[in-house]
Structure formats: C-alpha cells, structure tokens
C-alpha cells in the first residue's frame, strides 16, 4: 500500500517564491493544480503522452505529470499563467488567438509552453522543426496546421523585437 507523507516545498513559481504543503505522492501537475491553484496546467493523460501539462522547469520543458512535486524544491517553474505581461499577451498567445490556433483550447497551455521552450532554443525554426518539437503535444481539434502557423508568426515577431 502506498504510504504518504506531508512535505513542505519551496520553489519559485512564475517568478515568485512560494512555499506549500504537498502529499509525497503528488506529481508536479497535481501540486500546481491542487496546491497552488494554477489550473491553467491541464491533465490530458497523466502519463507523459499528451503534453497538456507541459511547464518549464529550470529552463527545461517537462511534462509536469511525470515530475514528482518533491523534486522541485529550490527550482524555478514557469507555467502558462506566467506567460502574459501586465499590459500585453506574450506574442505566442497573441498569435494563437489571431491565427485561430485553438478550438477547444485544452491543449493550448501545453502548446504555448512547448513553443516558448522551442523558440528559446531555436528562434528561427523551419516548419519541419516546429512539427518535430511539438510532436510531444497532442491536439485533437486543429490538425496542427494553424498551431504551426501561429508559432511561426510569433517567432517572426519575437525576432523583430530583439
């Protein structure tokens, strides 16, 4: 039988240091959703196969359902809630909106975080590179084309801003 322990965890979440109580069985996905009320992080499969729960952990893209909450002590976590600035949306958010890159929208937070990680690593990807990078994110509604186009439009805007 699984045994549980209470853990006190301190980590930087979207720029703010947060301390919270978690169950030792909590995944990072559960901790973000249930303990920190960051419900923008979505659960699609809870076993690493859909990317709906994608967050950026210490600069690396991870599926938060496959990370234990206990592992993030002292780490930096970025979620979709931290993407927009106070005045304006992130270019990726704006381009997803304008390009109709979402239908139901459940996959969108994961795609946004994956795309952010992609563009941090490769600011000028080819379409093929975008498709390969995003292969860990499932979208059942769009057939992906408008997502690829939105990522490319955002990449262009972000390059122009630099």
């Amino acid at each position: 039988m699984a045994t549980s322990e209470r853990l006190v965890i301190t980590a930087t979440i979207n720029g703010d240091e947060r301390t919270f109580l978690a169950d030792s069985r909590d995944s990072l996905l559960e901790a973000l959703r249930e303990r920190l009320d960051l419900k923008g992080v979505k659960e699609g499969c809870n076993n690493g196969n859909c990317g709906a729960c994608a967050v950026i952990l210490d600069g690396r893209l991870v599926n938060s359902c496959c990370v234990m909450a206990a592992e993030i002590e002292g780490s930096r976590v970025e979620t979709v809630e931290g993407l927009a600035g106070p005045e304006a949306l992130h270019p990726l958010q704006q381009c997803f909106l304008e390009g109709a890159a979402l239908q139901c929208g459940i996959c969108t937070p994961g795609f946004l975080m994956s795309s952010k990680a992609l563009l941090a690593e490769n600011p000028a990807p080819t379409d093929e590179e975008v498709r390969f990078w995003l292969a860990g994110n499932l979208c059942r509604c769009t057939g992906y084309d408008k997502i690829i186009e939105a990522v490319q439009a955002a990449a262009e805007q972000m390059r122009a801003q630099k």
Binding site: L38, G40, E81, L89, L97, E98, L102, G105, P109
Partner: peptide, 23 residues
C-alpha cells in the same frame, strides 16, 4: 471575416475554467 473569439484570451492565459478546474 476572421475576428478573435470572445473566449480566446481566457484560453491562452490558462484562465478558462474546464470541468476538472471546478473547486
């Protein structure tokens, strides 16, 4: 025309409340 959808901002910022988000 191709306007932005009214529920769009909530869906790209993670604010949109889906069934599993009810508390």
């Amino acid at each position: 025309t191709r306007p932005v959808r009214p529920d769009g901002v909530d869906k790209v910022t993670g604010r949109a409340a889906y069934g599993a988000d009810v508390v």
